[in-house]
């Protein structure tokens, strides 16, 4: 019941100050310096509680970065800031060299090439798997086009290919609401892939998955890295160990440690944070 309350109160977003922009113009992201995302001194506070306090981070193009940290470290808030859901109080966030994400709204950021998967799998439950993926496909997403668009055969091919990739081939006509939890997670990842994003933000992608499903997800992610950049927030350390190259540890709104899994696992401060003082 409570979740419904927060849903109907529109205050859960910082929307008051963040109007949707008029035109969604996908621009090309400039990765000439090899870096796809910069966060510099980003700070956010909610009624005195400092969720992020001067967070700085950079992600290379094609990198797979794992982000770990105890509850309340600011992982979800960081994602909110990158995707335009929350406006930072100070600091800057750049996508590539030239795109200032703090000045863009969610659809613009999505069109620019950043895809996000939520903690709770969020798919269009009343639409079929096919429609879910088709809606996600990279295309002109303005109202005018939606009234006249016809399904191109290349679109159909693209959707079928993605369905194969996420293991949902043959489920095309099933309503997304009838899928299992793990399948919904995959469908959502599939929807992100359909967007053709440069950067994928994945919030606890293997939560609620069986071991087998987790393993297949790890393979999928590893195959995606290089072609896309990935930021994975995860608590499942086995999964992190399976995919991680560079790991960033967040604590109380800023970066505590960064490096390979071995390095951060042996960092004295990280051990303190995780094992308690």
């Amino acid at each position: 019941m409570w979740s419904h309350f927060s849903k109907s109160a529109p205050g859960t977003t910082s929307g008051g100050e963040a109007p949707y922009a008029h035109v969604l113009q996908p621009r090309q992201v400039d990765v000439s310096h090899g870096v796809i995302l910069y966060l510099e001194e980003v700070a956010v506070s909610f009624d005195g509680f400092k969720a992020l306090r001067g967070l700085s981070l950079s992600i290379d193009d094609g990198e797979l970065r794992c982000i770990i940290g105890p509850n309340g470290a600011g992982k979800t808030t960081m994602m909110d800031c990158i995707t335009g859901k929350t406006r930072p109080d100070s600091g800057s966030i750049f996508f590539g060299q030239g795109m200032d994400l703090t000045r863009m709204n969610e659809p613009e950021i999505a069109s620019a090439g950043i895809g996000r998967k939520f903690q709770k799998p969020t798919v269009f439950e009343h639409h079929t798997v096919f429609d879910n993926l088709e809606l996600a496909r990279k295309q002109d997403k303005r109202v005018r086009r939606s009234l006249t668009s016809h399904q191109a055969s290349e679109a159909r091919d693209q959707v079928c290919e993605t369905m194969k990739r996420i293991g949902l081939a043959g489920h095309a006509d099933l309503a997304a609401g009838t899928l299992s939890h793990g399948q919904k997670q995959w469908l959502e990842i599939g929807m992100l892939l359909m967007q053709g994003p440069r950067l994928l933000l994945l919030d606890e992608p293997v939560a609620g998955m069986t071991d087998d499903e987790t393993e297949r997800t790890a393979e999928l992610f590893l195959s995606l890295a290089g072609e896309h950049s990935l930021i994975v927030v995860e608590h499942d350390m086995a999964f992190v160990a399976r995919i991680a190259r560079t790991v960033t540890v967040l604590h109380e709104g800023c970066v505590l440690a960064e490096g390979s899994l071995d390095v951060v696992q042996n960092d004295q401060r990280v051990v303190e944070v995780y094992l308690g003082r």
């Binding site: 269009f124 809606l135 959502e188």
Partner: peptide, 27 residues
């Protein structure tokens, strides 16, 4: 039409539609 599909998509999961690049405002 596609328009209707996006409209129901927004109804069922507005933030997802938004993060896919659809602007719910205009729909």
């Amino acid at each position: 039409s596609k328009f209707g599909k996006v409209l129901t998509a927004i109804r069922d999961a507005e933030s997802r539609a938004m993060f896919l690049g659809y602007n719910p405002l205009w729909y």
